[in-house]
Design a binder for these strands. Structure first.
Length: 391
DNA sequence: AAAGCGCACAACCGCACGATA
DNA sequence: TTATCGTGCGGTTGTGCGCTT
């Protein structure tokens, strides 16, 4: 049985708000506040609108000090840094930008900033509706289907396609991160010849350019946590095992180095600050931990992702934490300068479109990936970032 | 001139979570 | 402990405008 609708959809007005409606809502809230009940509010003031619609209208357009358009370079920097770090948590990103709404930022990102930074065109809705499936559709389908990637098999076409499609989202952030780190495209008007170091999240935090929620202890940034894989949707046996991951982290902690071509340890193998985990509900995290323990899959590393920033974002964050700029990491927080140009894997190209470049990570790259060198990082990262996670 | 297309923005939808009875 | 409800969020869709063909 589904959930009861929040309002009688037959009797509420939909579509654009009229000036009269705006005036009614604004006047009432300015005088009485919301009363803590958006659902009841429209009846009180005689609006034939859904309470949720009223809330949205107020938050996005009517409340004081709302800014629209004209995003500054500084704001773009913050949006990008946070997007790389935490993904599409627009409300959190919006909290760092006074006067901006999550909806505004989301729209700005989707329509302008993403294209500006990645040089890719979002597929039009028309083409999406009438042509072959693209990564965006597949992501949606996967999310709606819930378990398109839920089995351990990634060999059938559907799952392979879904996994590839999901990688577009995951790898997009990594690619964005790298491009910005390397100043490849002179984003924001910067000269490509003088690579611009993208500000580390920590830098933004310490310089007070960003403010984490007040509930988040400052020292959480340096705190590591024991986290766990989600109890379901694992694709682990194609390349590695959780045990291998555990062994790898133990080896890493002992200061030993793994051999090239050996079991790679990217998943489940490194510490990460819990600043993101801190947004999770302790109860839900505990529940997940208990479930994992019951399933016998408990390991060091990885992340349950119950609440907080979600599994998908956390995996990317974990990767960037070790190899990117969101943490000290094994490479001092910097992507190796010799990282090769990123190309779209053939299989993904068929879906994404040959003119779009997506990240892949090749074994023959000359860059130093430390213990990852010599491994087929492409497949591993790909599966790592996406395998079995139901984002 | 008209149709098609791309784009930006506003709004809606459904889900997840927390609070509370 | 469980069911219900309100809220918040992220993804998606609707719509109008301007440009191109």
């Amino acid at each position: 049985m589904g959930r009861a609708p929040c309002c009688d959809k037959a009797s509420v007005k939909k579509g654009p708000w009229s000036p009269e409606e705006d005036a009614k809502l604004k006047a009432y809230i300015e005088e009485h506040g919301t009363g803590g009940n958006w659902i009841a509010l429209p009846q009180k003031i005689g609006l034939k609108r859904c309470g949720k619609s009223c809330r949205l209208r107020w938050l996005n357009y009517l409340r004081p000090n709302i800014k629209h358009g004209d995003f500054t370079e500084e704001e773009e920097h913050i949006i990008c840094s946070l997007y790389i770090s935490i993904g599409s948590r627009w409300s959190i990103i919006a909290a760092q930008l006074p006067g901006r709404t999550d909806n505004d930022i989301k729209n700005y990102w989707n329509t302008k900033l993403k294209k500006k930074l990645l040089g890719k065109r979002a597929p039009s809705r028309r083409s999406r509706a009438t042509t072959h499936q693209d990564p965006y559709q597949l992501s949606t389908a996967a999310a709606a289907g819930g378990d398109m990637c839920s089995t351990s098999s990634v060999n059938n076409n559907n799952n392979a396609m879904a996994t590839q499609a999901l990688s577009a989202s995951a790898l997009e952030r990594i690619q964005l991160h790298m491009r910005l780190q390397q100043g490849l495209y002179g984003a924001f008007g910067g000269a490509a010849a003088t690579p611009q170091q993208w500000p580390k999240l920590e830098t933004l935090l310490t310089s007070k350019q960003l403010q984490l929620p007040a509930t988040e202890p400052v020292d959480a940034v340096a705190t590591t946590v024991t986290v766990q894989q989600p109890p379901h949707h694992h694709v682990i046996d194609d390349h590695h095992s959780l045990a291998a991951g555990r062994e790898a982290v133990e080896a890493e902690q002992l200061g030993s180095t793994s051999t090239g071509g050996g079991a790679y340890s990217m998943p489940c193998s490194f510490e990460r600050p819990n600043k993101l985990v801190g947004f999770s509900s302790p109860s839900s995290a505990a529940a997940t931990e208990a479930e994992v323990a019951a399933s016998g899959l408990t390991v060091n590393g990885g992340y349950g992702g119950a609440g907080g920033f979600g599994t998908h974002h956390d995996e990317i964050y974990d990767f960037l934490y070790k190899y990117g700029s969101v943490g000290a990491g094994a490479h001092g927080g910097h992507i190796p300068a010799s990282l090769p140009e990123l190309q779209c894997p053939d299989s993904a190209a068929a879906i994404i479109g040959a003119d779009e470049k997506f990240s892949t990570w090749t074994a023959d790259a000359s860059c130093d990936y430390g213990q990852l060198q010599g491994n087929h990082i492409s497949g591993n990262l790909h599966d790592y970032a996406l395998g079995g996670y139901d984002q």
